[in-house]
Simulated scan of single mutants.
Amino acid sequence: MPGSPRCGGRPLGRAAAALCLLFATVLAGCEPVATPPAPDPPPPAPSGSPSSATPSGEAQAAAPVRVRIPAIRVDAPVGPLDVDARNVLPPPDTNDGTGWWRAGPEPGERGPAVIAGHVDSYRGPAVFYRLRELRAGHLVHVDRADGSTVTFAVTQVERHAKDAFPTGRVYGDTSGPELRLITCGGEFDSRDRRYLDNVIVYARVQDGTP
C-alpha cells in the first residue's frame, strides 16, 4: 500500500505534498515491509495554518466512506490512513476494506486522491484482487460522508516494480480531480513473503459529477 509523508501539514498536502512520498507494501499478515527508494526532495513547505480549503481556494469535499467498482464487483468501505513514525502510510488493517490517504485530497477535489487495498492474504482474495482487470472507461464511484457520490472513469492501468514506483506520476499535482487505486501485483516472492510489483489504476472525474 502507498506510503505518503506529510510535508509540512495539510496545506502542502493535497497535491504539492505528494512529491515527498515513500511507498511501503505489506501483504496482509506477512512481513517484511518493502520500501522503494525515496523520491526527490520535496519543495519547501508553505507558511500558514492548516485550512479547510483546497489549494485552489475551493471548499473542501467530504471524506470518502465507500468505494464501488461495478466492473470488478467491489463495494467496500473506505477508512482514513495516516503516516506512521517512519513517514510511511500503512496498509488498511482489513482485507475487505480500503484506506484513503487522509493528508491528500478528498475524492472530487483537485489533485490525486489515493485509495489503497490488499490484493489477497493467506485466507484468499482481498478487496482489490481484481483491480488489474480494470480497463479505460470503467467507472469508480466514491461515496462521501455528506451523502454525495463522485464518479471517476478509469484512464489507465499500470504495473510497476516496487523499486521503480512512479511517485511523481501517482501523487503529483493534477489540473483537476483524479483518483489512484493501488494494490500489490506481479510475481509473489515466497522467500520474502511479498509481491514484487504494484498495480496502479488512474482515473479522472467524470464531467458533471460534483
Rank of each mutant, 00 (worst) to 15 (best):
V154N: 01
T209M: 02
A53V: 13
G117M: 03
I182H: 00
L196T: 15
R204L: 09
A113F: 01
V170N: 03
E187G: 08
G57H: 07
V119M: 03
Y202M: 03
A17I: 06
P55S: 13
P11I: 12
S51K: 13
A161H: 12
S148H: 11
V150F: 02
V154H: 02
A153I: 08
H138V: 10
R110E: 10
G99Q: 04
G186L: 04
A18P: 01
P105E: 10
R159A: 09
V119T: 10
D146L: 11
Q156D: 15
P107R: 09
P166A: 03
G124W: 08
R10I: 14
Q60G: 15
I72H: 04
V65T: 14
D120M: 05
R66T: 09
G176N: 07
S4G: 09
L19A: 10
A62M: 08
H138I: 07
V170H: 05
A164D: 13
T149N: 05
P5S: 10
P2H: 08
V140W: 02
I115Y: 01
S47H: 13
P36Y: 02
E106A: 15
P11D: 12
D207V: 04
R135F: 01
N95L: 12
T167N: 11
H118A: 06
R194M: 06
A16Y: 09
G3H: 03
E178L: 00
L27W: 05
T98G: 06
L131H: 06
F128Q: 05
V170M: 03
